[in-house]
Design a protein around this nucleic acid. Sequence first.
DNA 1: AACCGTTCAGAGAGCGCTCTCGGCGAATCC
DNA 2: GGATTCGCCGAGAGCGCTCTCTGAACGGTT
Lengths: 331, 331
Amino acid sequence: MKRPTLEAVAARAGVSRATVSRVVNGQLTVTPQIRDAVMRAVDELGYVPNSAARSLVTQRTDSIALVVSEPPTRVFSEDPMFSTVIRSASLELEAADKQVVLMLAGSPTSHARIERYIASGHVDGVMLISMHGADPLPAAIARMGVPVVSYGRPAVPVPLPFVDNDNVGGAEKAVRHLLDRGRRRIATIAGPQDMIGGQDRLAGYRNALRESDRRSIVAVGDFTRESGAIAMRHLLEDDPQLDAVFVGNDLMAIGALQTLRQSGRRVPDDVAVVGFDDIEAARYTEPPLTTIRHPIIEQASAMVRLLLGMFKGGPAAPVILPTELVIRESA
Amino acid sequence: MKRPTLEAVAARAGVSRATVSRVVNGQLTVTPQIRDAVMRAVDELGYVPNSAARSLVTQRTDSIALVVSEPPTRVFSEDPMFSTVIRSASLELEAADKQVVLMLAGSPTSHARIERYIASGHVDGVMLISMHGADPLPAAIARMGVPVVSYGRPAVPVPLPFVDNDNVGGAEKAVRHLLDRGRRRIATIAGPQDMIGGQDRLAGYRNALRESDRRSIVAVGDFTRESGAIAMRHLLEDDPQLDAVFVGNDLMAIGALQTLRQSGRRVPDDVAVVGFDDIEAARYTEPPLTTIRHPIIEQASAMVRLLLGMFKGGPAAPVILPTELVIRESA
DNA sequence: AACCGTTCAGAGAGCGCTCTCGGCGAATCC
DNA sequence: GGATTCGCCGAGAGCGCTCTCTGAACGGTT
């Protein structure tokens, strides 16, 4: 009851191994008559090519590693973005007949494991999802001569093609919206400064404020709901008069709304709130959250296309996708 | 600049291929002195075994497929459970030095793709996550002689080892809690009846009510927040006097809370609400949601252990994990 | 001194496939 | 009609590894 091999199919169809191989791989240099005979033998035996043997000679595996580096805070897995990215990248790769190998780079030991895995030729290319700043993985993998792309701009300046959304521009858009609405004291709850998203969105906030001569009021969270609630409390202590806050992501914005409610502030009447990400929950907050939407799905598929393009020797230029202001009731 | 092979390492260390293989695979029948020489050569050349060549002869790949069948409604990817299961299964497998290959069985074409992939020997075993009822995949894969386990009891009675939580018992627990609190008209919003979780939780609701001679009031949703809101509206129309509702999952419960608020009902004073799953958002609803917690992480790691056990010829008996009532303010 | 058991390294086959190369028959050309 | 080209199939090498089998070397026994 072993799995049939090429040899077995060849014997049954009365041809050589090479011919069967040609048919299975869709080459056109085979007489239709023989082709049919081979196909019939394949069906009858239920033949499926052995992938190890195939990739031993072709040096290809048709699978791609999706390496997810978790940030120090363990919230990433609760972040809906996580599954959205994985899902849309999978769909896109599936369409290109590539398989996805998911690797979690959480524990300290996993780095070596992942490097070994990639070095051993399991995959043809790597997609990195690493929000983390000082992550040594990108550089390490890039060094091995395997094509790599990154989801999100790498924090350390490593020569790595990436696809990112316009974090700076999005934050500017958010703050300008608050200015347009006549807000005067605009604070921000920034994300962790060892993540690129945290840095860039804070930079965007500063840019927009600088143009308008307002002073900046900054608290820092870690992208979790809870940290948003705490940061909001600090902001209110620092400046009870503030009338707007731009929050580095929606999760923290939800926490901030909670604090504002507890402190008796009305949103948006007393304090306007703008988030970032447009996660699904943003539609269901009280009041619904005005936020910056960035195209997660498009970003994931752009990343896939970038990597697939590199296989064909295409250019490896970074891609930056635009953001969009979604106005709801909180600002 | 090719990757070094066993041959190259053997040449450098001045030994045979076989000896290098022995050292690399940690056999103890090698003189320490030679062993050291080989290890040095391995380091100097940066040798990493070629996985295709290795698994061609060993017939093992040390990777496991995690096949996620999406239900017809596209919400699964937004369900936080999704990432939690993937994450904890990955961690557990990683500890056993196995790799995770993620496969999404969404599109209609993907079935054949997945079957081919598994048939071609890419993986040593398969973990199925399929909430979907009439899914033909479990049976198909089981037929190929590859060890398979299922996350959640398969809806069709297929002889497949699985790990599930006690959906029936959990639902009973929820309803009994409502009865204990003196509620008289207890409705339910059931999940889709082509998913096993939807069926079993409804069965539990019925069991508990039957014991107490209350009549059942049933609406059906599809596990999305929106469907919960709509179902709640129907329930209120059917029986404006109802004073409690057991909802098949937290996402729908959140929708139900929304409807209740809009209709002027106070929770829990007028209507008590109990959910199921204890997702993170359940702690942040208004009021915080009483719900049934089931150990997702434990369930995932139990599934991994079950599969790994099967490799060693262990038993393949189903595992059912207990649930727990988490009392917050909504009931 | 001859024999034997033991330990450990090397030789070589073979896992299942792809791909180049050569050969053979048929078609084409002068 | 003979030389040349072309299309199509088979033979066989080889991808990088594991693993069995063989054989050399060594120490201990009679």
